[in-house]
Design a protein around this nucleic acid. Sequence first.
DNA 1: CCTGTCACG
DNA 2: GACGTACGTGACAGGG
Length: 933
Amino acid sequence: MSNTEFGKGCHLHLIDGSAFIFRAYHALPPLTRKSDGLPIGAVSGFCNMLQRYVEGNTGPDAPTHVAVIFDHSGKSFRNDLYDQYKANRPPAPEDLRPQFPLTRDATRAFNIACKEIEGFEADDIIATLACQARAAGGRCTIISSDKDLMQLVGDGVEMLDAMKNKRIDRDGVVEKFGVGPERVVDVQALAGDSVDNVPGAPGIGIKTAALLINEYGSLEDLLDRAEEIKQPKRRQTLIDKRDQIELSKQLVQLDCDMELDFTLADLEVKEPEPEVLLGFLAEMEFRTLSKRMADQLGMEAPTIAEAPAAVAEVAAPEAVPFDASKYECVRDAAALQVWIDQIRERGWVAVDTETTGLNEMLVDLVGISLCVEAGSACYIPLTHKAGEDDLFGGDGLAEGQMPLDDALAMLKPVLEDPAILKIGQNIKYDAKIFTRYGVTVAPIDDTMLMSYALHGGEHGNGMDTLSERYLDHTPIPIKPLLGSGKSAITFDKVAIDDATAYAAEDADITLRLWQQFKPKLHQRQVTTVYETLERPLVPVLAEMEMHGIKVDRETLSRMSNSFAQKMAGLEAEIHDLAGEAFNVGSPAQLGEILFDKMSLPGGKRGKTGKYSTGADILEDLATEHDLPGKVLDWRQLSKLKSTYTDALQDHINPDTGRVHTSYLQTGANTGRMASSDPNLQNIPVRSEEGRRIREAFVAEPGNVLLSLDYSQIELRILAHVAGIETLKEAFAQGQDIHAMTASEVFDVPLEEMTPDIRRQAKAINFGVIYGISGFGLARNLRIPRKEAQGFIDRYFERFPGIRRYMDTTVEFAKEHGHVQTLFGRKIHTPEIAAKGPKAGFAKRAAINAPIQGTAADVIRRAMIRMPEAIAHLPARMLLQVHDELLFEVPEAAVEETIAVAKATMEGAADPAVHLDVKLVVDAGRGQNWAEAH
DNA sequence: CCTGTCACG
DNA sequence: GACGTACGTGACAGGG
């Protein structure tokens, strides 16, 4: 060895390797090596960063010694101190894992020392080397932006944030932590770190921590003299949590005295060996970088064969054929343990549950399927019944199944492990089932939601559709297993062999879809939509659904009876007027009575050859005859009774006494959700009679229902996206927006505004959002089409920006096949190229989608933030109705809940999008939903 | 299973 | 010039 000793005048660079890797991974699209499909995006970025680093190292400040330091995989000694340390870190992405060893190879190829040590973190190695360099009288620069390393700064040790090209010295540390480097650990011990899961002192952040440390001198003195603190809460925390704080200090304190099997002298800067470096770059098939390095080194660039298409196809990861006979039926703990070991090794698993029905609040778990890689799946039958040959009660369990409790006890640690990703197709369903069995599933990925983010508007996102489209495989249908109609059976009665083939395949399909969709999210640039608007909403919705809303059966029952009486009376009158008895509820029969027997005018036949009898037609006829009006009244009552006062009673859960809807996140193409079983997003409100149904939705005693809704959110968003200054101004001044529109379009001063003119303007405003047409507005306002077109022309004259928005939106859709919301959600518009009547539909949908979709994104963001915002309150979020959130809260906490929830909703667009128009939320409260709304 | 109707935003 | 239209949903009843 002829290494130069490290000493005065020497300059050591220490590069935080993991930071480089993650930055490279996230900065680049998921590249793969042409010849075999190996993911190499992060390696490529890593090499480029190293190259730029080496290139920049010239001049008097150049390092004499350098090393890249990596974290060793697996647990560190800190996990022995505290098993939760870094426990909430998500697992490394699956396409990054195989790249870790390659980044070490890359470092060595550049002839830079590459160090990692089992049981220690990179930070400890960096700390030890930095201390050694300082002791030897040399300088050290740590290339990292990790604030944990700031405790090392001072006396010749500095940090360099390569990203911002900013040096951090003693003053930089004081700026960040409020104390010098020697007290940084004290501040960190108090403030804790949610990223690394260092607990710290609850309620104390960096600011407060620095204040305390500066006042008392050190953490030890502070803890010893904690009684002197004036603020009672803070004092108590420091006294109560002393152990936790001291543990936190141990966790953040870097180890400067590690035993190393190398010396600083071993890290001397060396020129790369051209053959080695170019050989490595060629192996990775980095053409551009190979060329650049070859030029620099004065060498011939190695030739990298363009992989011929045929070869690439063969070399591409071969699609494993679906083979049900390969699926394993797991019948005992030993077999399950093998699967659990495989899951732990990989860090992910596709999960699917089989149950006795579709209502997650009521059904029982029958079995669980798992899949770890394409083609490798299992089914764990748990509560299948023995079948009919069991003479003494068909309820006996079938042979050869693990006890449910045993299986759950084994799976719970896996399903709850923050380092293991659970992948599902509509995983909210499975997560709710597991919750009822005491298992909280996290973290998660959902292929249905990935598909929605990727393909929203293109096609459905159900498993059958996705499997056929993306895997070219038709899943085993459930129908033959369960039968249909009266003879249908539940899944627990299905033979275990059949169940295994069906259930394991579902998990297999889910995993394969996940493997396809994951890189596609990056490619299509919808990762943020998926990760900030879709995935985090899953646990929020699950909780709302499971909590439910209290519905008073008595109230509904009384109303049902009252409606029935009124309907009977109306029915008699209608039959009397018609001169014969007929089914009032049959549009076909009613049509014949009205237009054939009674010869009323305006009989139009629909495409099925029947007269149409919609409300608008009956309303017109009401001027001619008494009968149509009575039918309208009857229809309203019939609707209210069958859909609401009768049906809702059947949805009251016998265990909870509450109604639990189910939200379908992928329900609407625009990003809105749909609610079903029952649909609680269409409870009547517009008619006086219907609104009374909301009286049956009540708060628990001592509580109130709280309704918060966005005021005019879609018009506000329109004003923003179309850039209409007059509208923005009106919103800023809190004006009546419909009156303002009326004044502009009809030239009526605000003080002379009549309700009727305002009503017409309101219809225009809504029409604009929907992609206005003369015909549509004419029908809505019941005015001649020409007149309606005149209004629209006037409107566009006054607000030319709106027409511009409409035109550019339609153009965008034609060019890209989709439109998008302000938050990047893409709504595909495959019909936009259509000819004929379809074209009009597609145009209007394209105009509406960004507005409706942005509003939907805004409330989603509010909902995602809400649980944390109201965590300190006894309030619960119960329902979402597109622009409204409904809460249940004890009376004492109403004011505080309004303040917090309102602020969360009004600020929901920030900081991702700055709207030119502020969002306004109105609040109402009451014992029931009618009062609250 | 499809259609018409009507409840909501 | 005619056509057929407001945007987004779900539930229920009737009738094939």
